[in-house]
Simulated assay, not measured.
Amino acid sequence: MKLSILDQSPISSGSTARQALYESMNLAQLGEQLGYTRYWIAEHHDIPGLACSSPEVMLGYVGANTKHIRLGSGAVLLPNHKPYKIAETYNLLANLFPGRVDIGIGRAPGGSAEASMALSDNFLEQVRKLPESLKDLLHFIHEDFPSDHLFSKISASPLPPIPPEVWLLGTSEKSAILAAEYGIAYAFGQFMSEKDGSLIMKTYIENFKATNRLQQPITIVAVSAICADTTESAEELALSELTWKMQMAKGEGKTGIPSIEEAKQYLGRNGEKEQLKDMRKLMVIGNPREVKDQLSQIQTLYQADEIMIVTITHRFEDRLRSYELIAKELWGNPR
């Protein structure tokens, strides 16, 4: 089983964004050491508890401190940006780190309506135009605009020896169909969706159109997972992320990812056990054997080429330990 890392660069209560970003770099280094295939970092805007608003900046930092793990955005949010600028930026990264760069594309706002307005003149219009923008991005990356196109005379320089690999990230049949139509790789965010993702993935695979860029469908399923030495410890660690998400849904959670003690105090005051139970269903939580079994079931259900894991805990050491335990359970010694 191929495993990769999706990092949201979480800021723990009592910590700082600078510390969270430094920890993100350390996480990528550990992932490389353990044998994870790729490290992606997400784009978020004005969300308390998440540090990365600019994946391309972080990828330059991470790439300079790693050697071979693939690097990418998970996702760069296309409605917030012009395709040409994305192509220039990731081509530059692909020159610095040849054969290692991915561009994961998403359509979500990545923040509040006000943040979207500050980033884009008309966010909803840019969402509507996403298929056209994605097509332009692919042409810029592969330098294959039709000769009569306005942009055929310009290049997204500096052109790298190996173009970045473009992925479409999504949680709906609409995104799966678009990825299939354009013949690009597809990543399904299982940790963000209660939909039947296996059917959505099947739609992508069955409708995939081979191109010169990609001959066959390639898939990732992104899951939220927390692993610890015991099931009880993993369940306890998960309280921090679950509580933070609950707080964010209520417009709270501005101090970052709570500690286990803070989470227990909050849950004791609010007593929302049913909501917690529903949120828990989207996560993989357990000891190494249990997590391995659950990931194997997900891979079989989705027929996925790769599993991408996002892990949020209050203590960075627990996050590192979770990725380490999963890797060792699946592969034994680091690759």
Rank of each mutant, 00 (worst) to 15 (best):
K195M: 09
E194I: 05
I200M: 12
V166K: 07
L169W: 02
G170H: 05
A238E: 08
G197D: 03
L199W: 10
I200V: 14
L237V: 03
I177N: 13
A222T: 14
V221Q: 07
F191Y: 14
S224C: 11
K209S: 12
L242G: 02
D196G: 04
S172W: 02
G251M: 02
I200C: 12
L242V: 10
Q216F: 08
A225M: 08
E235M: 08
T219N: 08
A249E: 13
M246L: 15
K202S: 14
T203Y: 01
E252N: 11
G183D: 08
P217I: 04
L214G: 10
V166Y: 01
I226E: 00
I226L: 06
A179L: 04
S193M: 09
L214M: 13
I177R: 15
Q215D: 14
I226R: 10
R213A: 02
A222H: 04
T211H: 04
R213I: 01
K250S: 13
I177A: 13
E252D: 12
G183R: 09
E206Q: 12
T203K: 13
F208N: 11
L239I: 12
N207H: 15
Y186C: 11
G183I: 10
I205M: 13
E165T: 14
T211P: 03
S172D: 01
Y204T: 04
T231R: 01
S233Q: 15
D229T: 12
E235G: 07
S240T: 11
W167M: 00
L239P: 10
A234G: 09
S233K: 12
L214D: 12
A176M: 11
E252M: 07
D196L: 02
Y182P: 00
L237Q: 14
L169C: 07
I200H: 10
P217Y: 00
V223F: 01
L178F: 09
L239C: 12
L178R: 02
F188C: 04
S198Q: 12
L169E: 03
N207S: 15
Q247S: 13
